[in-house]
Design a protein around this nucleic acid. Structure first.
Length: 350
DNA sequence: AACTCGTGGGA
DNA sequence: TTCCCAAGAGT
């Protein structure tokens, strides 16, 4: 068998399987490049089942580029609330605005599209191939896992430079008649068959082409170095209620973790007395006796919060610092609240 | 290159 | 519980 024939048979086996067996997902019902762009950004580091309801709401509210381009940021963040990695939403909006004003559409040019904020190598290839049929590589974690097994590639896929190796491999293999089905087929295969643990090789449409399967090494690949575990940080929350039933909320800084989101007053200490001193000083107010409401751990990718939340009354509102305000529980829904804050809110029965 | 940036699910 | 992870990108 000649090498070129092997590649062609691989392509046909993969795209044929994909066209027959692909899951019925919302973004596979549209050819709207803008909607496909939205789906790819939402799917960055996020599971399909999590994205589905967000995608439905988001594309309904911001049905075309103009709607999103000029939407109020608060509304944008409210639609993204709970999905995580919030800079994705802000970058998406600014890039949709730029594309709309510059091209009037999603540019069908990888060079132009890839320059937009929030569009990295993966998203560039995914949107260009799926929306426009352009043969560009869309290398995500699935593709690196699948190809490392098929081609017996032993480079560490945790290392940034390794991705380029896989992009070159994809360009050698990609189906130029249907780059969309090829790229999505690779990812679909990784998602449902060629899984990280216990891959279902007996159901695999391309196992005849798989080096790892032939050598019985499918569980050994890919090679991936582990990341170091996260550091823990104490977070003491002092939820403060005024005599009229309003609660003090603070808005986090515009940059960094949970940027711009709202939370109950919080101090980075394990000592509740110290937290009261810090927060009462910050807002120039007097805090009554505190009562513990809830204690939990919140795990981020790179750090862990050990949260202890207390509630207390204040006789008057003092002098609130910048980026803070008093709100009734019904008004909380106007604010963008990160999950840790939602947990505290639930514990307080608000 | 290494670090930052969320969340929820599964083994 | 603990760990890894899931269609990554910005700095």
């Amino acid at each position: 068998m000649k090498t070129s024939d092997w590649k062609q048979e691989f392509r046909e086996a993969l795209t044929g399987w994909y066209r027959e067996e692909k899951r019925d997902l919302p973004w596979r019902h549209t050819r709207n490049p803008y909607h496909i762009w939205i789906s790819e950004v939402m799917l960055q580091q996020t599971r399909v089942d999590t994205v589905i309801p967000y995608y439905a709401r988001f594309t309904e509210r911001f049905s075309d580029m103009k709607e999103l381009a000029y939407a109020p940021e608060e509304e944008l963040m409210k639609m993204w609330e709970g999905l995580g990695y919030y800079s994705r939403a802000r970058n998406l909006q600014s890039s949709v605005r730029e594309a709309y004003e510059t091209y009037g559409e999603v540019p069908a040019d990888p060079e132009k599209f890839g320059k937009l904020k929030g569009v990295g190598p993966y998203t560039e290839g995914a949107v260009m191939s799926i929306a426009y049929g352009i043969p560009a590589p869309a290398v995500d974690g699935n593709v690196m896992r699948v190809l490392s097994r098929i081609l017996l590639i032993e480079e560490d896929i945790a290392k940034p430079k390794t991705r380029r190796l896989f992009e070159e491999a994809v360009m050698e293999l990609i189906d130029r008649e249907d780059p969309s089905s090829f790229n999505q087929g690779m990812m679909e295969l990784g998602a449902v068959i060629c899984t990280p643990r216990r891959p279902k090789c007996l159901l695999c449409p391309v196992r005849d082409f798989c080096g790892a399967y032939h050598e019985g090494r499918e569980e050994e690949l890919p090679v991936k170095s582990k990341k170091k575990k996260q550091q823990s940080f104490p977070q003491t929350v002092i939820a403060l209620r005024d005599p009229e039933g309003r609660w003090l909320m603070e808005q986090r800084p515009e940059e960094g973790l949970l940027a711009g989101m709202w939370q109950f007053p919080t101090a980075e200490t394990a000592d509740p007395e110290e937290a009261v001193r810090i927060i009462s000083g910050r807002h120039r107010l007097t805090v009554g006796p505190i009562e513990e409401a809830v204690r939990f751990r919140h795990v981020f990718t790179h750090r862990i919060w050990e949260v202890t939340a207390y509630a207390a009354s204040v006789p008057d509102r003092g002098t609130p610092a910048d980026r803070s305000g008093w709100f009734r529980p019904e008004e909380f829904d106007m604010l963008t609240l990160p999950n840790p804050t939602k947990k505290v809110r639930a514990a307080l029965g608000l």
